[in-house]
Design a protein around this nucleic acid. Sequence first.
DNA 1: CGTACTTTTGAATCGCATCAAATCTGGTGG
DNA 2: CCACCAGATTTGATGCGATTCAAAAGTACG
Lengths: 219, 219
Amino acid sequence: MRRNRGWYDSDHMKRSESTLPFVLAELLPPQLHALCAPVSFGKGKRLFEIGKKPAFMFFVDHGEVTLERLGLNGASVILQRTRHGFVGEASLHSARYHCDAMAVADSTLARIPIRELRSAMEQDSVFALRWVAMLNREVKRLRMQCERLNMNSVRHRLIHLIETEGVQGSYPLGSGLKSAAKELGVTHEALYRCVSSMEKNGELLRDNGKLHLLKNPTA
Amino acid sequence: MRRNRGWYDSDHMKRSESTLPFVLAELLPPQLHALCAPVSFGKGKRLFEIGKKPAFMFFVDHGEVTLERLGLNGASVILQRTRHGFVGEASLHSARYHCDAMAVADSTLARIPIRELRSAMEQDSVFALRWVAMLNREVKRLRMQCERLNMNSVRHRLIHLIETEGVQGSYPLGSGLKSAAKELGVTHEALYRCVSSMEKNGELLRDNGKLHLLKNPTA
DNA sequence: CGTACTTTTGAATCGCATCAAATCTGGTGG
DNA sequence: CCACCAGATTTGATGCGATTCAAAAGTACG
C-alpha cells in the first residue's frame, strides 16, 4: 500500500515527472510543484556550503542530513540533524548560507527553489498562511521534543513521547525500537530494557509495531 | 547605537501607552501595537483553557508559562515551558485551544488578539513574511537546543551552548549560572562543577557575567 | 543584623552509556 | 531448500557522570 501521494496525485493520474513527498505536495501551490526536483545525495555529499548565495532549500524524505558549522577550535558543531523535514529554511531570509549541509546517510530529498518560493509567498497570502501553519506545527513539535529531552529517565521520555506524539496512547514504531531510541536521545539498549520492564509492570504493551500505553489504575 | 526599533517606530514617535517588548514592537505592524495589552498573571493563574475558543495568544516577557494537557492516566503532561517568547501560536490556526496555559511563576506578558493578527497577516504580505522569518529563527533555535539536549555530558552541552548561542565564544549569563543550568537541562550543582573544572583546564574563562570559551591549542 | 537567595563543595546513590556477546530476523545466492 | 550474511534485538557486566541530599559560605537588601 502506497500511502497518500498528495492532492494532485492519484492512481489514475500519472505524474511521471516528480514524486513530491506528501507533506510538500499538500503545502506548496501547484505552480511550484514542477520546480521542485527530486534529488539524491550520497553519504558525505554536501547539499550547500556556508557563505554561498542561497538558491535552494531542501526537504528530506529519506536519509539523514546535518547542518554544521566550524566551531572556535576547528571542530565542527552540529546545529541540527534532520531525518525527515525541511533543511535550510533560514536561507529564505538571508543573503548567505550560515552553515554547511551534509548528507550523513544516503538521502533522497526535494530541492526547492528559494526565489520562487519567496515570491509565491509574497503574492499568495493563503499560501503564506499555510506556510505559517506548517511552521507553527514544527515549532510545537520541537518544543515538545525539548521538553521530553529535559527529562532524565528513559521511562519518562518514552511515556511523554507516546502521550504527545501518539494517538490514544498508541505510538507506531516506524522502523523498530532502534530508530525510536534515536528520537528519544538514548541508546537502543536502554530503550529495550525500559520497554521490557514496563511490559512486566503492565504499563506498556507491544503489539505489531505499536507501543500502547496502558491506563494505570494506581495513578 | 540602539539597533532597529522596528520599521514603524522611531524616536520622534512617542509610544506612551504601552511598552511592548522589543521583539514584538519590531515584529508587529503599527495598527496592532495598541491592541496588544500588557498583562500580568500571578503564579498558578491560567492564561487560557483547553477547549475554549482561541481569542488571544501571548508573548512572555518575564516569568514562566507552561502549556499542559491531561495525560491518559490523569497526570498532566507538560508540552512546553516558556520563559521568554510566544505562547499559544498554534491557536492561530485552530478553532479550539488544544492545551491549558498556566503561569508557573509571576509573569508579565503581552496579550495579542488572534483575529486581528490573522487578518493583518492576510492583508499585509510583508508582515506575513516577517512573521515567517521570526518563526524560522525560532525553529532554528529550537533545533539547536534539541541537538544540545541530545548530548549526554554537561561539558559538551555547555560548549555547544556557547558556540551556538554565544557571540565570538562569549556567552552572557542572564541571571547567574542557575538559570543557565535550567536552559541546559542539568542541575545547577552539575553546572557549577563543570564550569570550575573547565576553568582549571583552561578551556573556559568566567568574566563579569560572561562565559568565554578559550581556544584550545591542542584541538 | 537578619533574611532570602545564589554559589559552592561534599558524599552517596542510581541510571545510563559502553563494551561484549548471544539470539533472532529477513534477504541473497548457491 | 539450505547456507550465509547483515542488521535488529536482547541480555549481561562494568564504570562514569549526573542527580540527589546536605551543608557551608558568599551576597544583596530592607
